[in-house]
Structures are given as structure tokens and as C-alpha cells.
Amino acid sequence: EEWMVEKALMVRTGLGARQIESYRQGAWIEGVHFKRVSPSGESTLRGTTWYNYPEINKFIR
């Protein structure tokens, strides 16, 4: 699984929702560690946020 939603990321990493938000707003790079995608497939600020687990795992190492 490369891309996953927040709940799956929480299960895989043990991070809480606030921790994920903090990383997203600070250290993680949009387009690398996470992306927002609307149902139409376009990038957007209001779409579902998807997280790239392999890239996040590399960051944590």
C-alpha cells in the first residue's frame, strides 16, 4: 500500500490525528508525503487527504 487515508496511517504508524496534522503542517511535503485529491481526481484543498506511507516511513527513519 503506497497511498492511504489518515485512519489507515494511524493504524500503521501509531500516530494520532493531532500528530499527523502537526507533521502535515510542518515537516511533511505536499505531493511527497501527502496529497489532497477531490472525487473528480483533481488536486484541491478540500479533497480527501492521502498519505504516502513509504515516504513517511523513510522520513521517520
Rank of each mutant, 00 (worst) to 15 (best):
E1Q: 09
E1D: 12
E1P: 09
E1Y: 09
E2R: 07
E2K: 07
E2S: 07
E2D: 11
E2L: 08
W3E: 00
W3M: 01
M4D: 02
M4C: 08
V5W: 06
V5A: 10
K7P: 06
A8E: 15
A8V: 12
L9A: 02
M10T: 07
V11M: 14
V11D: 14
V11C: 14
R12Y: 09
R12L: 14
R12V: 11
R12H: 09
T13C: 06
T13W: 03
T13Y: 03
T13F: 05
G14S: 05
L15D: 01
L15P: 00
L15R: 00
G16R: 10
G16H: 11
G16C: 13
A17M: 10
A17T: 08
Q19F: 04
Q19P: 02
I20Y: 02
I20N: 01
I20M: 04
E21G: 05
E21S: 08
E21R: 11
E21H: 09
E21T: 06
S22D: 12
Y23E: 02
Q25N: 14
Q25M: 13
G26F: 13
A27C: 11
W28F: 03
I29H: 05
I29Q: 08
I29V: 12
E30K: 04
E30Q: 06
G31W: 06
G31N: 07
G31Y: 04
V32N: 03
V32C: 04
V32Q: 06
H33G: 02
H33N: 00
F34Y: 13
F34Q: 01
F34C: 02
F34R: 01
K35L: 07
K35W: 05
R36M: 14
R36C: 15
R36H: 15
R36Q: 14
V37Q: 07
V37F: 08
V37C: 12
P39F: 10
P39N: 10
P39M: 12
P39T: 13
P39I: 13
S40W: 10
S40T: 12
S40Y: 10
G41N: 10
G41S: 10
G41L: 08
E42C: 08
S43W: 05
S43K: 05
S43E: 11
S43T: 11
S43R: 03
T44R: 05
T44S: 14
L45T: 12
L45N: 13
R46F: 14
R46Q: 15
R46M: 14
R46V: 14
G47Y: 14
G47N: 11
G47M: 12
T48C: 08
T48V: 14
T48M: 10
T49F: 15
T49H: 10
T49C: 10
W50N: 03
W50K: 04
W50F: 12
W50S: 03
W50T: 04
W50M: 13
Y51V: 00
Y51T: 00
N52M: 02
Y53I: 05
Y53C: 04
P54F: 12
E55T: 05
E55A: 10
I56P: 00
N57R: 13
N57L: 15
N57T: 13
N57Q: 15
N57I: 15
K58W: 06
F59L: 07
F59W: 15
F59H: 05
I60T: 04
I60F: 10
R61T: 14
R61Q: 15
